[in-house]
C-alpha cells in the first residue's frame, strides 16, 4: 500500500483510488453535463435525471442542495463539480467560496484572491496546524 503522505495536507481532496471508487458514478453524472441534451434533461427534472445514475442517497442530496464540499467528501472531484456550477450559470468562485472553510460569498472569496489568495503559511500540514 502506498503511503499517502498527502493525507497530511489540510482541506484537500485528491482524486486517488479511494475517491475514484467512492465517487465514480457521481463524477460520471457531473461529466454528463458536458452534453447540452443532458443539461436540458437535468434542468427539466433534476431528481428524475439523477435517478439515471447509481448515486447514493447522500450523493443525490448533496447535488440537489449544491453542497459542494459534501460532494467532494463523497468522492467528487472539483473539475467535475465545475460542470454543475457552470450549469447553474454561476461563476466558479461561488463554488470555491462554498467549499472554503469558513465558507465565503462570491465577493468574499474574490476579495481574498485579490488580496493575494489564501496564504500557504499555516496551511501546509495538519500536523503543523495541531502543533501550532
Amino acid at each position: 500500500m502506498t503511503i499517502r503522505d498527502y493525507d497530511d495536507v489540510p482541506g484537500t481532496y485528491v482524486l486517488d483510488s479511494r475517491n475514484y471508487r467512492k465517487g465514480y458514478h457521481l463524477n460520471m453524472f457531473l461529466m454528463s453535463l458536458n452534453k447540452s441534451e443532458a443539461r436540458a434533461a437535468f434542468a427539466a427534472d433534476e431528481t428524475a435525471y439523477l435517478q439515471t445514475y447509481k448515486l447514493t442517497a447522500e450523493q443525490r442530496q448533496a447535488v440537489l442542495d449544491r453542497e459542494y464540499l459534501r460532494m467532494l467528501q463523497l468522492g467528487a472531484n472539483v473539475y467535475y463539480a465545475f460542470k454543475l456550477v457552470s450549469h447553474d450559470k454561476q461563476p466558479p468562485q461561488v463554488m470555491y467560496g462554498k467549499m472554503a472553510q469558513p465558507a465565503m460569498s462570491f465577493d468574499e472569496f474574490q476579495a481574498m484572491m485579490m488580496a493575494g489568495g489564501r496564504p500557504i503559511d499555516g496551511n501546509r500540514s495538519k500536523k503543523e496546524q495541531l502543533n501550532g
Partner: peptide
C-alpha cells in the same frame, strides 16, 4: 501555477514556490 480549487483550503496560492 499554484492554485487549489477544491476543499476547505480552496484559494491557496504560493508565489515563492
Amino acid at each position: 501555477m499554484s492554485h487549489q480549487l477544491g476543499g476547505e483550503r480552496a484559494g491557496v496560492l504560493n508565489p515563492e514556490f
